[in-house]
Amino acid sequence: MPLPIERLCWVDAGHNAGLVTRYEVFHLPALFLVKDGHFFGALHTRLIHSDLVNAMGEALLRPAEELP
């Protein structure tokens, strides 16, 4: 799926409990947006191209948060 991103990282929650705890993952799958070292939080969207692109655009309009 062509997305406007440089890198997509898959994290297996079963093997990375520390990341799950740090990012407070409560539901799987979970998507988080980080751009240029700035954390824009979780993306709550369906895994459909247009929905993902729209959710990323909306997230980038929000102020960046502190990285957990």
Rank of each mutant, 00 (worst) to 15 (best):
M1N: 14
P2F: 12
P2C: 11
P2N: 15
P2A: 15
L3D: 15
P4A: 11
P4M: 09
I5F: 06
I5P: 02
E6M: 08
E6P: 00
R7D: 00
R7P: 00
R7Y: 07
R7N: 11
R7W: 00
R7E: 10
L8N: 11
C9G: 00
C9N: 09
C9K: 09
W10S: 00
W10L: 00
W10D: 00
V11W: 00
D12L: 07
A13I: 12
A13W: 05
G14S: 08
G14W: 07
G14E: 12
H15I: 05
H15S: 14
H15D: 14
A17G: 07
L19S: 03
L19D: 02
L19K: 02
L19A: 10
V20C: 03
V20D: 04
T21E: 14
R22G: 04
Y23L: 07
Y23S: 04
Y23H: 10
Y23Q: 02
E24F: 09
E24N: 15
V25I: 15
F26E: 15
F26M: 14
F26R: 15
H27T: 13
H27D: 14
H27G: 12
L28C: 00
L28Y: 12
A30Q: 01
A30G: 10
L31D: 11
V34Y: 03
K35L: 13
K35S: 13
D36C: 02
G37V: 08
G37S: 03
H38M: 13
H38V: 12
H38N: 15
H38A: 15
F39P: 01
F39H: 05
F40G: 02
G41Q: 03
G41Y: 01
A42F: 07
A42M: 13
H44D: 10
H44A: 04
T45Q: 05
T45I: 01
T45P: 06
R46T: 10
L47E: 04
L47P: 07
I48T: 07
D51T: 10
D51E: 15
D51K: 10
L52C: 07
L52S: 05
L52P: 03
L52H: 02
L52N: 03
L52R: 03
V53W: 04
V53C: 09
N54I: 02
A55M: 06
A55P: 01
A55T: 06
A55S: 10
M56L: 11
G57T: 06
G57R: 13
G57S: 11
E58A: 15
L60P: 01
L60M: 11
L60A: 03
L61E: 11
L61K: 14
R62K: 14
R62D: 06
R62T: 04
P63H: 13
A64E: 03
E66K: 15
E66A: 15
E66R: 14
L67M: 12
L67N: 07
L67F: 11
P68Y: 09
